[in-house]
């Protein structure tokens, strides 16, 4: 393939990736309800969105779930990554290694269905969790969020110079102290990335949530899904635009911070 042809494919690829996103933004400012017919510039759908209590409530539920699930995922992911990257061979290592990667390749419908069946069975056996709702969704999201968190954190942990931890030990720090003084600061970027990833995944999931949600705990994706199954909705376009803006701001901020760091650190050698 010649250079020019390669360039065309790459440009086409990026257009393919971004055109739909761009179209969401453009149509969110469309006066017309018929989404694809341009009826002039308007911000009225943003107003409608802010008055839609169903969407607002669902968004609030989703944010709560995503926050809790992301925190749980990061903690569980850190523990699992520590065990896998630092504890050498131990009983259950293969098991843990398998369990943290399996959710990554399991279709969502299967995870959702099997978790629901577990919750139902547990409820009849031990009475917990009583019914389905926020708790069951948080558990489900934390479970697959952990799998993603481990990937991110373990990669960083393997790259961290192990002799740093040994040096701290050598200088008199006990294991827990070593973790907080040396390991955790080294892991910080990965922990932030893992948290954000788990948060995003939770905020985005419709399939698993549909299985394990109960009455009154419809998440934002579930509400959007039921709306868009009936066709395009300008309100959803407005919502999408807000999501895109938020993600872009976070990503740019992350890029700006990581680009700035070496610049301030570099001094004369």
């Amino acid at each position: 393939m010649s250079r020019a042809a390669l360039r065309i494919v790459v440009v086409a690829g990026f257009v393919f990736l971004y055109a739909p996103i761009l179209s969401l933004v453009i149509y969110s400012f469309n006066e017309s309800r018929l989404v694809t017919v341009w009826g002039g510039f308007s911000t009225k759908w943003y107003g409608e969105l802010l008055r839609d209590t169903q969407i607002l409530e669902a968004a609030w539920i989703s944010l709560k779930i995503a926050f809790l699930a992301a925190c749980l995922s990061t903690i569980l992911g850190t523990l699992a990554a520590t065990a896998l990257a630092r504890h050498g061979r131990f009983r259950g290592r293969t098991m843990l290694g398998g369990l943290v990667t399996a959710p990554l390749v399991m279709p969502e419908v299967i995870i959702g269905l099997s978790l629901l069946l577990l919750f139902v069975a547990m409820e009849s056996l031990v009475g917990w969790p009583a019914g389905r709702g926020l708790t069951t969704i948080v558990i489900a999201h934390a479970t697959f969020g952990t799998a993603f968190a481990v990937v991110v954190i373990q990669a960083r942990m393997v790259a961290l110079d192990r002799s740093l931890e040994e040096a701290a030990q050598d200088l008199g720090a006990r294991p827990l102290r070593v973790f907080f003084d040396v390991t955790l600061p080294g892991l910080a970027p990965a922990l932030v990335a893992a948290w954000l990833l788990a948060f995003t995944l939770s905020l985005d999931d419709v399939v698993i949530a549909s299985f394990v949600a109960g009455p009154g705990s419809s998440t934002l994706p579930m509400v959007i899904f039921s709306k868009v199954r009936l066709g395009v909705s300008p309100e959803v376009n407005a919502l999408a635009t807000l999501v895109i803006v938020a993600v872009t701001v976070v990503v740019l901020a992350a890029a700006w911070i990581s680009a700035r760091r070496p610049a301030t650190d570099a001094g004369p050698h």
Binding site: D204, L239, A240
Partner: peptide, 8 residues
């Protein structure tokens, strides 16, 4: 960004 919204 949301998978659901991008498919939509």
């Amino acid at each position: 960004t949301s998978f659901l919204l991008r498919v939509y």
